[in-house]
Every structure is written in C-alpha cells, then in structure tokens.
C-alpha cells in the first residue's frame, strides 16, 4: 500500500513537471491587441499650438494695396498727431485718446 501511494505521488509529480514544461514550450497565444480609440481633437484645442492668433483670424476681404497704404499713412499721421497732443499736455486721458484711424476702427 505504501509503495502504491509512493508511486502514485511520484506519478503526479512527474505529470505536473511535464505539464509545466509543455506549457512553457507551447507557443504563446497572441493576445488580441487592445485597440486604442483614436484621439479626437477637442473642439477648443488649438490646431496649431504655435500658430499666432493672427493666422487663425478669418481673412478679411482684401482691399487694394494703394488703399491699404493710404490707410496706414493716415494711421501714422493721426497717431503722431495724438502723440504730439499728449506731449503738449501729458495726461493719461490724452495718452489713450480715441483715434479715427481706419486701421483701428
């Protein structure tokens, strides 16, 4: 009886070892790749991080170059007049006085 139990336990032990070895040699079953959901852009996320606001502004209809240049020169004249006015009587009010410049309004 004792011998029978010994052989039985030894058989179990051998089978267990064989089972472990077979499991180790058998090719691993590939796990199905976990599909990451595509990262969607959040609506308020900037599409170009370094892009300036100027680039994202909706383009205005182009005016002729000559007209634009005349607007710029008028802006310069008005701003210089405003600056001259400030220098004559310096105050916070005159420093930031409103302008009629077409480039600003």
């Amino acid at each position: 009886m004792f011998m029978f139990l010994t052989i039985l336990l030894a058989s179990f032990a051998v089978m267990a070892v064989c089972g472990i070895m077979v499991a180790g040699l058998a090719p691993h079953e590939e796990k199905a790749p976990v599909v990451q959901p595509e990262r969607t852009l959040v609506a308020d996320e900037p599409t170009h991080f370094f892009a300036s606001d100027a680039e994202t502004v909706t383009p205005r209809p182009q005016i002729p170059l000559e007209v634009l240049l005349s607007h710029i020169e008028r802006h310069v004249r008005l701003e210089q007049a405003a600056a001259q006015s400030f220098l004559s009587v310096p105050s916070a009010g005159s420093l930031h006085s409103r302008t009629e410049s077409p480039l600003v309004n």
């Binding site: 701003e79 210089q80 405003a82 600056a83 001259q84 400030f86 220098l87 420093l95 930031h96 302008t99």
Partner: peptide, 8 residues
C-alpha cells in the same frame, strides 16, 4: 513721439 506711439 515713438514712446507715446508704443504706449498707445
């Protein structure tokens, strides 16, 4: 003048 223009 330019200091004032810059501030504005």
């Amino acid at each position: 003048i330019f200091q004032t223009l810059w501030a504005r």
